[in-house]
Design a protein around this nucleic acid. Sequence first.
DNA 1: GTCAAGACGTCCG
DNA 2: ACGTCTTGAC
Length: 760
Amino acid sequence: MGISGLLPLLKSIHRPTELKKYAGETFGVDGYGWLHRGAVACAIELAQGKPTRKYVDFAMHRVRMFKYFGVTPYLVFDGDMLPSKAKTEASRAKRREESKRIGLELLRAGKPSQAYAELQKAIDVTPEMARHLIEELKKEEVPYVVAPYEADAQLVYLERQGLISGIVSEDSDLLVFGAKRLLTKLDQHGQCVEINRRDFCAVREISLTGWTDSEFRHMAILSGCDYLEGLNNIGLKTAYRLIRKHKTPERVVRMLRFEGKHQVPENYLEDFQQAELTFLYQRVFCPRKQDIVLLTEPGPSVNVDEMPFIGAPIETEMARSIAVGDVNPITRQRIPVPRSPGKRRISQALAPASGPPRSLGKPIDEYFKDKGSRRIPLGEMDPNCFAIDPDHNSNATAADAPRPIVFPLPRPYLDSAEEPASPARPYTNNPRLLRRRSEPISKLLGLDPFGSSEHRRRTTGPVIQVYQDPASSTRPPKKARLCDDATDEEGASATPEKSKFFSATQQRKPAKKKETAQMLMSDDSVEEAFRSLPDFDSWRSEKPVKPSDEIAIFDEGSPEKKSEVVLPAAPLAESDNVEDQVEVPASSPLQHGPAEESQSQGPTAMTPLGELLKGFSYETARPRTRVVHGLPTPASSVHPTATPKNVHPPTTQTPLLTPLQRIGARALHRTTSGPTPTRPRTPVSGLKPKQLSVPSVDPASIPLPKVDMEELEALNRPLGSEDQIVPESDGENEENDDEDDEPKQACSGMRLDLSRFLYS
DNA sequence: GTCAAGACGTCCG
DNA sequence: ACGTCTTGAC
């Protein structure tokens, strides 16, 4: 279930990838999902009560696929259901029963296909089924855990703890829980799609730029989620608009009631808050502490006792028993150990643990201190050996029973810092940057209703390179509609900025589509870009110009290129050495002193533009993005989705740079490692530089428009391993990162992928 | 009056 | 994921 329509809404930040690109990492997976899919294959047998283990086979097949690709799966199973879900679960159970009945009838009636279809709806994944799978997982040393309540929350917790570096799931709820890295649409070949929280700023469908987790969550809940029915006629888009416009759920509800167009239940707000608290504080099992904890560390103002809806507390020993799969999380009864399916595996199971890396430090040792018993193939044990009296069993379990195997990841950066994961891929982590960016705006403004004190680990900052071209004729109206009423409410702070910007622009091309202009005005990604024009500052320090003139630079090249230039909203984000010339310190008087970042830049922080922008308190408080002004070959800033006209101009093909551009290009070149719109760094061997510049590629030959070449390159780069290799790198010593030192990395093999990717 | 965005229901893998 | 229906804007 989850939030219907959320994943499609984020389509523009879907990054096609393959599992093998995450080799060496551990990914959490939703065990229920795999079991369910496996169960579909044997729906009939299950409905008939026949013994079958096909669902186990399916899941294990996936496990092996993960291993094959070098990725460690960390299976997480659902536990008990939350009170808030109990009702819906009850009705679902009823429906399953109904489907089962109908299905079996159809079967008897000799309509197998219809029966099958019906029986698929009757599938119920039980703790016993999970237990069967768990037995196999133990044999293969696959880490797993049974969540006290929902697997989603558990997965996100594991991710925050750095026990996994991402989550493989089809459930969009994970994003609402705060997942940072989600892999979806995984197929049997290992193809999948990555959705990264840090890319949210790049979503094209709606502008989530600067949105906090809190706002995002509000939007999701408002549109309807598992914990709270949505209001009639309010889907995601509308919810987005409402939150954007009114900022807080309270105000949204007040407005809705005032307008009377929507009927809002009496206690909607209370329910809403409960839903949110459930997303925030649901109980999970911490493999490190071996105990129940809350998904989010509660602040002082949070009274857990007043939140029964997040699930009842669970005693430590019980929680452990549940976590390892010994006890049914719902009934709290011991789950009988299934009779051995796997005699063939005995030897393997008995084999001295080759499994988990040994030198892993103490938490791990703890997990393995019960090694002895773990080695005994449970499947071969007497099923009753665990059937102890309830009083006693918890103790026994805690001490003797197998525990989830937890591999501390070979990913130093995960544990090292507050700023965890900044993982891999096209990203780099500049803690400072992230920190800055993660400051919730609403907080700054004192708007956050439920005090989004939340997690410290939020990743909000813009990270990926986005080539939003507001002028792109592809989507203006939609966005305009989504944003327009936001603009009129946004108040004085925002408006002037826009008008300044656009008055300038419009003067230039008055006759140009008015529509477009309006759309632009309503598009805050423009503000975003404008606000953060990095190099404006630097430029100006050398040769001050009026903002409008700066804009002019963009426009001048060629009218249609304006779009490209205006927006590469950006990313930079990830450059490690951000503070160099390229970065625009500025923009946010509210948020941070230019202090640290501008050793060399100090002065630029308050350049004319900076001052200009001072007025826009709200806007400027948002995370900033970096824009790469047209310079480096325009090509680089062309997003694949750009209309052909954007791509074609021959001029874009010529890498001729003005001196100024060269400076900028050099700076960017040197300082960025993430996907940036900048002129390509040295391409991976096997690719000619030219191939990286978009114009040289026929747009038509690019099947996946959402990906741009820079990103592709970045994606194919072994950043994951970089992180591992350079654990402590604070970002200052990686100048060459994205350049030619790649060969050094242990990923020469991946290069092939790039070309494949490019031309497939 | 038209058009299109968005919500919602149904079907499919 | 697709298709239909309702609603709101122009």
